[in-house]
Design a protein around this nucleic acid. Structure first.
Lengths: 194, 194, 194, 194
DNA sequence: AATGAATGAGCCTTCATTCAT
DNA sequence: TATGAATGAAGGCTCATTCAT
């Protein structure tokens, strides 16, 4: 019964997402998951044999949900670049703010852990993908005259590092929404009017 | 004998610094420290009763060493602001690059952990202190006409978030020195010629 | 449908025989059996509710197959005792050699286990049966003058213990066919020319 | 304190010997040992990190105790070969009889386990050593005319396989001392008067 | 001060067995 | 009959922390 299995799997992923959001990566034990899911120890092992395996599925699932309904190609055609940049920044802001409710901490911790073990993590590709998208927006905006942007590539990278810094900072201590907004606005002023 | 005690304490801190630099925060056990110090389990407990307590001392010690010989006041008087900004950035670059040899990962992990436990970490104050210093440099440079900088405060904050992002990224995956330099140069171009 | 049931039962026994031959007794889990049979966990329990129950059937089945086509009574009448002793020894040699392909290890393990639990195992009766057969051969051979054998009973017992020792040794470590043959010949020389 | 450590180690070995003698090899868990020793789980791990490691020490210890006071060289010079063979056989008989009180079962089980894992066990060397000793006795006895023995090597091997068989049989089911004695006498009659 | 053996809680993992379908 | 998901007990292992010496 692949259907039943899949829905159970999804159920576990959902519960585990809550756990990883609240406790990060390293602190999560199979016991935590088991308790959150209200299933037996052995039961969990039928689906996932380590927190790592489960975490990877949790992240994959989160990514799928994020990009959710959006069809980037269509958006590029139908919206102004300014609107898209604003949309992009808002999406990032959600994650920055999402403390205790997002996977930011767990993802950082996992990336650190992978680095130490010389394993590949998804951190780099996630960063690169987002940077690419932003770069595309900037390029189109520059071409159409909407933006004033000499080097879309550098600017995109710079913005993403700043956003990464905001995520890390917000995951490390209390960071007021006001300060976050100020930074996001500062970034956008580089090439457009806000 | 407070002297003897202090030198032993310093000895432990030095060894522990190596351990935390290599393994981060969460992965470090008392056993790791004990082995690195080549002292007895009980012996360590005479000085530190948890990894956390020890880690706090490790960080404090590292900060003291960094600001090391420098007398900021004197530097402000004797050097050009351009030189000082370059020096500041270079110091930051050292940390960004220092993978396996710096406390960056451990400090992030500790900050995350504190956040989850609603404890104060030193992360915020460290960030704020550095931002203040940078802001001062920018202000003075602007006043003297060396820099073209409208809002030193915002610019300083922006730069520090970007640097934080670079630290986090470099701690998460391989980040070439070239890319780091490109970003640092990009940041500085905002207000000065490089 | 007892027929269908029986054929399924036989199917399970055949697969289980392979498993017990390869892994001995103690190491075999229900999972091993289930996988070898490619049936469901629950399915297996319909036929056997423990590895022990199954193992007993496996052994019974193996014994039936061994004595297989042979009609001992008929053989006693039609063959010389020398030929029969040689045949008997050859049968035993097969088992001695059959590492990974025979139930020797599993049978020993099961016997040890039974002993510890004060349960009856089939080990003794198997030994006694074989000894009886051998004794009969020796007696007839002695009567007919084929063999020179004072005490067929003792000789038969001695041979069986030696054979048991060879089985145990071959199950414990690599024992060359040459050495085995040497021993078997030595035994037979006690009462006949080889 | 190597002294204290060693005596604790010896204490564990002694208790573990009882456990392995009673339960064989496969059935013994770290918990069994821990309970027999009345120490903590973690405590045992300070000395042995697996039942296998411990078992190897148990066997080594048992061998040392067996050969105990005896100086084989001296015995060869001072005793008649008949006496020595009788002594040798008596030693073997002790082990054969020692059910629940000897390591015979555990040693067999361990040998089977090693064979399956393609690991070296001590079984072969133990057998070979004993065979060599017996062979020497037979040779000397033959030279001195005490024994009538054509091929000491074959005879020694044959006797050892028979003894192995007796050990395995006695470990598998109830074997009366009378039967054991009968066999041992039968073996000795091959070359000497009993 | 210093040692390091000892403790025991806690996490990981496997497996026989059950049960709703 | 047959399935296979689910359970929970049992065993393995590690680690922070204590304590007698």
């Amino acid at each position: 019964m692949s259907d039943k299995t899949d829905s159970k799997r999804q159920y576990i992923i959902d519960k585990a997402t809550e756990v990883f959001s609240k406790k990060g990566y390293k602190n999560v034990t199979m016991k935590d998951i088991v308790e959150a899911c209200e299933i037996s120890r052995g039961g969990l092992y039928l689906y996932y044999s380590s927190t790592e395996e489960l975490f990877l599925d949790v992240v994959k699932n989160a990514e799928e949900k994020e990009s959710g309904g959006r069809d980037i190609g269509k958006m590029l055609d139908e919206s102004s670049m300014s609107d898209l940049v604003v949309w992009f920044i808002k999406e990032q802001k959600k994650e920055i703010l999402g403390r205790g409710n997002s996977l930011v901490v767990a993802k950082f911790e996992y990336a650190f852990y992978c680095r130490q073990e010389d394993k590949e993590s998804m951190a780099k590709s996630e960063f690169d993908t987002a940077t690419k998208v932003l770069q595309t927006l900037l390029e189109r905006g520059a071409q159409s005259g909407e933006f004033e942007c000499m080097s879309p590539k550098s600017t995109a990278a710079n913005m993403m590092y700043t956003i990464t810094g905001l995520k890390a900072a917000a995951a490390s201590y209390n960071l007021s929404e006001k300060k976050i907004d100020a930074q996001l606005v500062y970034m956008m002023r580089q090439f457009m009017d806000v």
